[in-house]
């Protein structure tokens, strides 16, 4: 009975959200570079990506300069080439210089990083608040505030377990797909509250630039504002026991109209008596 209800709900979600659009967008995951961060889908993720690239460039320049010296020395100052060892072993000027220059470089790194930290921590003025509760080993979601308030569901891995045990070649979204994805509207500030039922989990969606530990007994918050539609996949990022690798996160970012349709469909489901019996009251996790 519950299985049927879940299946029905899933179908409604897909119909309401527009099946084609979402699956076309899910190709972005595969299209991402495999050498770098996933393509950002929020301003925050883009800022993080920029900071990351900035750090890589700085490190690369230091790398070239420092190891340029080292490898030149290895090439030129070897005994087999008749090099005679100099005996210098101190130079206050040089030593001060190579202490001060790194400090200046660090300031250049710290400045943009500080701005991003402050932006990341600014969870105020959210349009929608969703609570993500980590369980061993699934995620529960409660829409607490904003459009869709009262929606609650549990989201589990939908890759069939049989596929895990045998060696058959897995599908594209292997271990990254769930039965009930989180649906959010594009362009709205979504605040994610995290908590957990048993051990520490972490709610992580790379393309949205969010990762927040879910701590049993306490809540923590983070936020994102998606700037393009699509399906964004993430995983639990804190070791939480046996099936740590099997509790993915799937966020569908949709247009406002599709979101409204999804909310209506969800409300209808929970209003239906069968579904109401199958699901506990929204705010109480069992």
């Amino acid at each position: 009975m519950t299985n049927n209800a879940a299946l029905l709900m899933k179908k409604t979600v897909q119909a309401a959200a527009g099946l084609g659009g979402i699956f076309a967008a899910s190709a972005t995951w595969a299209a991402n570079s495999k050498y770098n961060f996933q393509e950002p889908a929020s301003r925050m993720a883009a800022d993080i990506h920029d900071l990351h690239m900035w750090m890589i460039w700085i490190c690369l320049i230091i790398f070239v300069v420092v190891f340029g010296f080292m490898f030149y020395s290895i090439y030129a100052h070897r005994k087999s080439k008749g090099a005679v060892a100099a005996q210098f072993h101190e130079s206050t000027t040089v030593e001060i210089l190579w202490t001060v220059i790194p400090v200046l470089i660090l300031v250049g790194m710290a400045w943009p990083a500080t701005k991003t930290v402050l932006a990341q921590k600014d969870t105020t003025n959210a349009d929608i608040t969703i609570k993500a509760t980590g369980y061993q080993w699934k995620w529960g979601y409660d829409y607490i505030k904003g459009e869709g308030e009262g929606i609650a569901f549990v989201s589990t891995l939908s890759t069939p377990r049989g596929q895990l045990e045998f060696g058959e070649y897995p599908g594209e979204n292997y271990l990254l797909e769930v039965d009930n994805p989180v649906v959010v509207p594009i362009g709205k500030k979504v605040r994610i509250l995290t908590t957990a039922q048993d051990v520490i989990h972490a709610w992580w969606v790379p393309a949205l630039g969010v990762k927040q530990d879910a701590i049993p007994g306490f809540i923590r918050d983070t936020w994102f504002r998606a700037d393009r539609e699509g399906v964004f996949r993430g995983v639990c990022a804190e070791l939480c026991g046996k099936d740590h690798g099997y509790m993915p996160i799937e966020v569908h970012v949709v247009s406002e109209e599709k979101y409204a349709a999804w909310v209506a469909a969800q409300k209808q489901k929970s209003a239906a008596p069968a579904a109401a019996a199958a699901q506990p009251a929204p705010a109480s996790a069992s």
């Binding site: 608040t129 609570k131 509760t133 607490i144 505030k145 308030e149 509250l193 908590t195 039922q197 048993d198 049993p216 007994g217 809540i219 506990p280 009251a281 929204p282 705010a283 109480s284 996790a285 069992s286």
Partner: peptide
């Protein structure tokens, strides 16, 4: 905003107003 959770406890616990 009011939020309520129970930890392996067979209680129903909810705020009467969401915010």
């Amino acid at each position: 905003e009011m939020d309520a959770n129970t930890h392996s406890l067979a209680w129903r616990f909810k705020p009467l107003q969401s915010n």
